[in-house]
Design a protein around this nucleic acid. Structure first.
Lengths: 357, 357
DNA sequence: CTGAAAGCGCTAACAT
DNA sequence: ATGTTAGCGCTTTCAG
């Protein structure tokens, strides 16, 4: 079986054309399902394609057409289940439409974020879905604009002409805090991400508003903003529980933080909810199956991915210059058993069973 | 500032050459850090590049050089934390080396797997890291071979000339089962993935071997192979606990399965470990923080990603035709508090505290 | 050290 | 309906 092939051993459109005794244009037409091809010719070409195992070279196609049918996905850490779920949801929509997802993690570090934008400037995906962490001094926004491709921001607020999909984390933290306030708690700690990233800032805002509503003061030391790392939550919880007047309740302001809070609470022997009430922002197996099950402010994580993918498709289908869309997902409180009224004496140490009559 | 640009508004190597008054070849040389460029010329070109915001078009580069600096990553479900961790670990190695990871989920469905392989046949990544689920009738293996690129299989055993990295799940299940057997359990259930995928098959094998070692018979109905979906574990656990002679212990043979097992056990009021002992294959926050903490057979999930990435790099660095490497990671038992000797009477219902002297 | 030119594999006119 | 051909943007000889 004679056939000439490219250096990598794959046959090219030329090989097919030669073997089928047609011009390359014709092969291109059958590959792209162009209507004006004689059925007989089409069949002959298709047979040759099958015989040679010809696969159109997407690189060459992209070079010609200037579209890669590729969507970049940039997040701080793709190992984080939050982003993994979102990626999964987005790719479940994009993949069947012929788009391939190209991922990159930034570690939330500015330098890497810039690097990654550079990579995508060179690779020319058709669109970008991203969550950038480093604050904006205009450099990032400019870099994004230079990309000249549809961009969808996730859970972040970087001013610019791009679509954005996010969760009302302020609302989530607000409801969580109110719930605790309503139970009679006053020393409520909030552990969450740095205020420089939207979810962190939003939660602080919701928390603060809940206190303001009751005309109650916020104690600054009870606000622990730093990162989404469970170890951060562990350290902060330990530190909080070691205070002379430990908080009677903690809001874990991030999907991954609950694990750190529970671990530290366990180590400190702080019984939940008798000695310490806990609310988590973000529902997980852990929140549902912990003892007791943890009250959470939950939202539809995957919906972020779905909305982002749909925004991308909308742009790519021609609404390229429509006004930036902005979708905000609601957060809802699910009351479980991790919250109780605060213990009056020996705050943070009391044992509910012992104290009850 | 005059400058001609491509249709997408990006300047090309030609624009740079024109503006710097050099030939495109020279621009190419400075971009690729070729040594033989006069320093003065280099500087002039670099300035123009900065001024025009020129970014080499990776598509065109790939077309010429036939390398994409891209690695495909194919798994059943990228939302699954197991794969997300592995992807994270792999990309943490690949990204700094200039490789971009392209992901695709297959849902474990044959048709999609074939689709995805087709996509990658066209996109021409430099290598592929994958976990295929559908059994092999030779079609898949042939498709992979036609790809003519380095391939690394993860957690799967598909015969062929590719590297493989996997975990000794048989060993994990064996140790877990022995542990239970040693405690005196005899009716031990195993819930795991379908036997058609390696982790499922391996766990059944380890479990069976543990019984064989003790010359004990395996009761087939206690083997529940089906999927890695927590809902599957939930259903099977419910079904098992509804038996007239429910198992006294359950091995959750998959990282995600523990959640389903615990949920069902909770609903059935089966206290752990007094009424039901539980071992999980795969360590998680849930296993560590459940009450009681769950004994697990654990292994280093990320190491799979690291090993896969390293295998890819090794091939890409020239060891293209070395014999297929095969790395097997060990699994280790971490005893926590979810296992106790089986309850003698009223199996599956007794309360440990009531029975102890 | 630098310029000129030949393609990489494909699509999309433009002819016929 | 099909053949021909001009590039897409880049790298890489090959001359000079």
């Amino acid at each position: 079986m004679r056939r000439r092939r490219g250096a990598d051993g794959k046959s090219t459109i030329k090989d097919v054309a030669r073997a089928a005794k047609v011009a390359v244009g014709t092969v291109s037409r059958v590959v792209n399902a162009h209507p004006s091809v004689d059925p007989a010719t089409r069949q002959r070409v298709e047979r040759v394609i099958a015989r040679l195992g010809y696969e159109p070279n997407a690189i060459a196609q992209s070079m010609r057409t200037r579209v890669t049918r590729t969507v970049g996905f940039v997040v701080p850490d793709i190992s984080n289940p939050n982003w993994a779920w979102i990626l999964g949801a987005a790719s479940r929509i994009l993949q069947p439409r012929g788009y391939t997802v190209v991922v990159a993690s930034t570690g939330g570090e500015r330098a890497l974020e810039l690097d990654v934008l550079g990579v995508f400037a060179r690779r020319r995906p058709d669109a970008l879905i991203l969550a950038l962490d480093s604050g904006d001094d205009g450099v990032l926004a400019r870099a994004l604009r230079q990309l000249r491709m549809p961009i969808v921001m996730m859970e972040r607020e970087l001013p610019g002409p791009w679509d954005a999909v996010m969760t009302d984390h302020a609302g989530g933290a607000y409801t969580a805090t109110r719930h605790l306030l309503g139970l009679g708690h006053r020393r409520i700690a909030l552990i969450t991400a740095s205020e420089r990233v939207r979810p962190g800032a939003q939660r602080v805002q919701g928390y603060t508003r809940a206190f303001a509503d009751e005309q109650l003061p916020v104690e600054p030391d009870l606000l622990r903003c730093g990162s989404f790392d469970p170890d951060f939550a562990f350290r902060e919880t330990s530190s909080l529980l070691s205070r002379r007047d430990p908080p009677t309740a903690i809001v874990a302001g991030g999907i991954q933080l609950l694990a750190g809070v529970l671990r530290a609470a366990g180590l400190h022997g702080a019984a939940i909810p008798s000695a310490l009430s806990v609310v988590s922002c973000g529902d997980t197996d852990l929140a549902q199956l912990a003892s007791p099950p943890v009250t959470v402010a939950r939202w539809d994580v995957k919906a972020i991915g779905v909305a982002a993918a749909e925004a991308v498709l909308r742009r790519l289908r021609g609404a390229a210059s429509a006004a930036p869309a902005r979708v905000v997902l609601e957060s809802e409180l699910v009351v479980r058993e991790s919250c109780a009224p605060p213990c009056a004496r020996r705050p943070g140490r009391c044992q509910a069973r012992i104290q009850s009559p």
